[in-house]
Structure formats: structure tokens, C-alpha cells
Design a protein around this nucleic acid. Sequence first.
DNA 1: CGGCTGATGATCT
DNA 2: GATCATCAGCCGG
Length: 178
Amino acid sequence: MPRDTVRLARYLLGKVLVRETDSAIFLARIVETEGYLPGDAACHAYRGITRRNRSLFLRKGHAYVYICYGIHTMLNVSSEAAGIGAGVLIRALQPLGSTAKFNATQRGPGRLTAALKIDMVLDGIDLLVRGPLWLGSDGYRATTIGNSLRIGITKAADLPLRFFIADNPYVSGPRERR
DNA sequence: CGGCTGATGATCT
DNA sequence: GATCATCAGCCGG
């Protein structure tokens, strides 16, 4: 596992997110991520541990799931050692296959969770172990990684912590700043 | 098209 | 009561 949040954000690009429910399995490649650092004002862990953000403080590789704007569910991966609050937001996926209906047009952090039926029940689970939601690999390597400012935030908005697979059509936002 | 804004609810102060 | 890592729809050019 990469040793810090930025390295993890890049490492996750190209990895396969596997969602297994009682009735279906979804496979999707991670094509866009954002890093939220320790001590970063935009990181939910910035003001210390609370009931909502406690999963960010788990050892790297755990899911931090929360509801944004009362509507959208967000999926993050904790990214530092236990006790240090930081994470990587998953912003876009490329659908690879499924045993059920899988809308290939699901882009953006709030829509991909709906497509994979990711909910709060998954908050805090270990993504490095096979289970209802976990991270796999099919050997694919992201070659050209793009980088830009993070999307939709107001605090620490000047940090270039968004990463994406530059030549992947499922990336949800702008592609400036290689 | 690009920019603006209302909807919506869990969370924290 | 304020905040918010979103999104779809509406409006103007």
C-alpha cells in the first residue's frame, strides 16, 4: 500500500471496485480520485474525530461513506495510518461488468454510489478484504495521469489534489493540468 | 453552451 | 441554525 494520501489517490486509479450484494455483482474501474490530507481544511477530519467522520481515522483502506447535501452518498478510502484522519474520494468509475443492470452513464461521486448501491451500511468496512465492497485489480495500469484542483470545495481550494486517468472517457470533470 | 440556484437531510455547534 | 467533497434544471447570450 502507498505510504501517503497523494500516493494512494494515484494508486487507486485503474483499480477495480467490486460491489457484491445479495442479488448482483458490479465491477468498475476507478478513473478519478481526490485526496483529502491530514491538516487539510477541506478534509472532513480537519476538526477532529466525530461519529460521522470516524472512518477516516481507520487504517488506510477502509471505506468512509457519508451523505452529502442530504441527497448524495459519497465513497472515500481512508488513506493514512490508524488515528490520522485523511481519505481519498472516489469521483468517477468506468463500468466493467455486472450481473445486473448497470447504467454506464453514471458519473460523478454522487451518482456512482447510486449505481453500485453503496449506502451507509458500508461505512467503516475494510476494502482490502473480499466482502460486500472491496478493491481488486485486473492488472490494468493507468499510464497517463492528469491532475487538477479539487471540484466543488470552498476551503483549501488551491490544492491540486484531483487525479484522473487522462485518456479515459468516464472521467467526470475538466482535464486541464497534466 | 456556461453560470446560477434550489432541493434536501445528516451532522455538528 | 448553519454548513455542505452534489446535481438537474433553468435562464441568458
